[in-house]
Structure formats: structure tokens, C-alpha cells
Amino acid sequence: MSGQTSAAVAAAAKSVHQDEEELHGLLVPDATDLPLFPLSAVESNFVAYFAPDFTKPSHDHYIYRHPNGLCVVGLAPGHAALRDEGGVKGVDFNVGKSDRSAIKVTGKRKKNAQHFEANTMLCKVSTSVDTYVIRCCVKGSLLEVNEKLVKQPGLLNTAADREGFIAIIMPKPADWLKVKSKFLSREEYSNLRVESL
């Protein structure tokens, strides 16, 4: 009787062990199947567009568009501010009629979001050489600005394409379609800036 019970327990334990082995096999990939360098989250989740010389020469912006329509706007590698001696020293969202970082957008319907034009100012970025106005590039609702830049303007020098993004804008689908063709693809942009970069 007890022999049968312990046999059953052993069988159950064995089956649990087998399940775990099987699960482990599924979870851990073979190293040879993995790419040497994987695509980054930004590369795989967004389509990159570039607006070189936006309103002024060397004012290069990027627009990373997520398939859900949201656009992350930031400074492209060719932007003059990133190329000044000593890099970016300060970021100020207190431009135009309001402080862009003071408006809190809430709710699914994005209450309080301000509707901006493509050439509306987002912030000022200053280096030891000059101060540059950064603009929306796309017409739409401003959902979020990257407040971290106020205390950590250096993020623009180290990761302008990631943690150093400027703002998140939600354009209307129709507005996006109108403006999209004016932007360059990543390849077109690097060809344009090939000498200077």
C-alpha cells in the first residue's frame, strides 16, 4: 500500500520534473540562433523620419513614429546643438505662452493636451555657443515633454535618440499623411549628412 503510494508520488515528482525540463527547454534559446546585435526597441517599434534644417539650417529633428500614430520628436545627430563644443548645457521648456512641462495631460481622451502647429516651439536648448529653438515638426496634441532634460540636459549628448527625446506628439491621422512625405527616411538622412557626420 505504502509502496504503491510512494511509487505514485515518485511518478508525480518525475512528471513535474519532466514538465520543468520541458518548460526550461522552451524558455532558453540556443545561442547560435540569436543575432549578434539585436534590433533595438526604438528600431523595431518605430519608423524613423528626419526633418533636416527645420525652419533653420542645421536644425535637424527626428520624428519616430509608432504604428499607433504617436510621434516621438528629438534632435537628430546633425543638429547644430549636438555639434557645439562642450555639447548641450541646458534645456528650457518655458517658451511661448506657457511652460510646456507644466501642463499635465490626463485621461484616455488626453484632456488638457495643447494642439500645436508644426512650427510651434517646444523648448530651447542651449550650449556654450548658442541657444536653439526646438519645434514640434508635426501638427498635433502635445502629450508629454521629457522633463528629465531640465535636470539632466546631458542626456542629449549621450542618448539624444533614446532617453534624450524631447516630446511625444499625437497628430491626427490626416495631418500625419499630409506631412509625412516631406520627411526623409533614415537612409536618405544619412546620405544627406554623410560628409558632415
Binding site: V28, P29, D30, A31, T32, L34, N45, H66, N68, G69, L70, V72, V105, T106, G107, K108, K110, L143, E144, I168, M170
Partner: peptide, 26 residues
């Protein structure tokens, strides 16, 4: 960002109870 178009913009606190690294040989 991938769900920000349909969800409220909020900052939420979440708890990571524990983490463990398992190396992949090779």
C-alpha cells in the same frame, strides 16, 4: 508609448518581487 494612444498618461508604481539571471551557454 505603445499603449499611450488609448490609455491615460499616468505614472504608476509597480513592484518587481524578485529577479534571477540565467546565463545562456555560448
Amino acid at each position: 508609448i505603445r499603449v499611450l494612444h488609448r490609455r491615460s498618461p499616468l505614472e504608476r508604481e509597480k513592484i518587481i518581487h524578485w529577479m534571477k539571471i540565467e546565463r545562456i551557454s555560448g
